[in-house]
């Protein structure tokens, strides 16, 4: 269903349209909220607020963006304000800057190890778990950008609309996030075996 039609139905008080809106946007909102907020209780409150605000202010939706992007933007800013209030914004859960030579050695080993075809399944599974921990270690905004770009496969423009970050800043943050993540993974992946 087109966004415009959905909004029209919502404005006419059709509650089934709201269920559809939740269904269409829940994945995106979950990605944002799970990456930015650790506390389960706070997540619940934030998400319920996000959808309540979307319902209350649906008439403010401008058709020049996608409805999912608009809801995503409400979610992102709710989480951003939450982090700001809790003074958790960009906490540098610092992934220490390793020596370049160490990183190079570890990267080479990481690649050599991963090229074994027999181990492919196990490697993939293990890599995922290290990657997941690595993403959780990133500052919340970096983790969110990784999730939106790589998991949700959104464009720079869409992410920029959600986060209100200029595209240049967004690319810079994404670059730093990937770099931190790669350094974490090559240093921690099967560390005990390498």
């Amino acid at each position: 269903m087109e966004d415009q039609e959905l909004v029209k139905r919502l404005l006419n008080g059709d509650n089934s349209a709201f269920t559809l809106l939740v269904k269409n946007t829940e994945g995106l909102v979950a990605q944002i909220v799970f990456k930015m907020v650790d506390s389960l209780e706070d997540r619940r409150d934030l998400v319920q607020d996000v959808y309540l605000n979307a319902y209350k202010y649906i008439r403010n939706f401008k058709s020049n963006s996608k409805l999912s992007t608009w809801v995503g933007s409400i979610a992102y800013h709710a989480c951003y304000n939450y982090l700001k209030k809790k003074k958790l914004l960009l906490p540098e859960k610092q992934l220490e800057d390793e020596n370049e030579d160490v990183l190079e050695t570890m990267t080479n080993r990481f690649i050599d190890h991963s090229s074994s075809e027999i181990m492919e399944y196990i490697i993939k599974k293990e890599l995922r778990s290290v990657l997941q921990i690595g993403i959780d270690q990133l500052p919340p905004i970096y983790a969110t950008l990784i999730a939106l770009y790589h998991f949700q496969e959104m464009s720079y423009q869409e992410i920029s609309e959600i986060t209100s970050l200029p595209e240049g800043t967004l690319k810079n943050y994404l670059f730093r996030a990937r770099k931190k993540l790669k350094d974490y993974v090559v240093l921690n992946y099967k560390k005990e075996d390498l």
């Binding site: 994945g27 993939k124 990937r178 790669k182």
Partner: peptide, 26 residues
């Protein structure tokens, strides 16, 4: 290769899900 390996098949990552009713207040 390290970047490619890490970011390959990321869409298959388990999608986070809410274990509560998000629409209740609405």
């Amino acid at each position: 290769e390290a970047y490619k390996l890490m970011f390959k098949d990321l869409e298959d990552f388990p999608q986070p899900m809410f274990d509560f009713h998000v629409q209740a207040p609405v």
